[in-house]
Design a protein around this nucleic acid. Structure first.
Lengths: 200, 200
DNA sequence: TTCATTTCTTAACCCAGGTTAAGTGTTTAG
DNA sequence: CTAAACACTTAACCTGGGTTAAGAAATGAA
């Protein structure tokens, strides 16, 4: 399905029209390379073993990105909300099958651009490469911070930080998934929440 | 001190001369922007609170990159050996003070290029930007894999994987630092090693 | 409305790793 | 050569989170 401009998240428009100064023509051209994809709650956008050959802008909805450990447990790496880009970037750039699962947790709408279309667009709109560099820098930085956080904070500290920094997550994501994100079992999160409320 | 070509790690030369096809002139120009810096064992190349305004190629020696947690414990994020680039990239790109300490674990030799010099070089040698993109992609990917590893493996599994994948680390890095890298106390690593050898 | 499914909580038991403390090598510097 | 500093190990005790199992609460479908 073609993308209808009036349904696009304003952040998407702002990013390319203002931050990266796309002209109206460039923006229209860029948009023409996208298709809209709706995915219903609990369905997967990507599974381990599949090759990721597109970038997908999460226009509406939310998702969890997870991998399986050796015992087959799901381990959530991060949640995605409106204005995030979905995909397995290692797979996208290497062309090899990925290890990530991406499951939508609400009925969602994605704006999808295939690898080929993106490469075409990159040739026609040189600013796109700047965006890509910018995003890569941010992504690398976010990952490093995440490692630092995992190394220096306990499960309880990570939980409290999550409440402080991203309280909206608790409005939309079931506790069992938040537990997985914090790297503990749902029972342990429950016990921890109990311990924290009974502290006074 | 100026860089003397014959003392440079052959991987450095290969990377730019072959992988990125620098001409002899471009390579000589690029090299002219570097200075050699020798750092003795246990000295710091960078401390938290300092701004990182250079990229440093680790020509000889090894280093540990760590942060402090809230209790003031050192938490090693990674070790660097010959052919790694040292620095606090968040600080480098943001211009703000960083959170990383980089301490050399052997008498070492660094090839340092300041931010200003790198920017000059980038204007004169366009291939440098490709290298930068390539490195960013690799770094983001490595960080994501590291997160995945931390989420899916136990301390014992991470130890066994380290022995398997990077046995050379054990020849050069004291066990106490390896324990910190594995996110456990030195006593726990010692106990774990004992447990593993007595398994049969 | 009711039954089934999913989500969350509680409790008992266990174990890996933290903590504290003491000991044994092994380097390093004076 | 020797004292101090550093690196590694061992042991006893404690605690947070895993595991298993069960039940309560919320959500959804028929």
């Amino acid at each position: 399905m073609e993308v209808d401009l009036k349904n696009i998240n304003h952040k998407f428009v702002e990013l390319f029209r203002q931050t990266f100064a796309f002209t109206e023509e460039e923006f229209a051209l860029f948009l023409s390379y996208f298709t809209v994809k709706t995915v219903t709650k609990k369905d997967y956008y990507l599974r381990a073993g599949e090759c990721c050959h597109a970038k997908a802008y999460l226009n509406k909805g939310c998702a969890r990105n997870f991998v399986l450990d050796e015992q087959g447990h799901e381990r959530i790496l991060f949640f995605a909300f409106e204005d995030w880009w979905l995909g397995d970037f290692d797979s996208y750039y290497s062309g090899k099958p990925g290890t990530n699962y991406i499951q939508l947790l609400e009925d969602s709408e994605l704006l999808v651009i295939s690898k080929e279309n993106f490469q075409k667009a990159e040739k026609e709109i040189s600013k796109l490469t700047q965006w890509y560099s910018f995003k890569m820098l941010r992504s690398a930085s976010a990952s490093r911070n995440r490692i630092e956080e995992m190394k220096t904070l306990s499960a309880e500290e990570r939980y409290l930080k999550l409440i402080e920094k991203q309280p909206h997550i608790f409005q939309r994501i079931p506790l069992q998934h938040i537990a997985s994100y914090l790297n503990i079992e749902p029972q342990s999160l429950s016990r921890m929440r109990n311990r924290l409320t009974n502290k006074h």
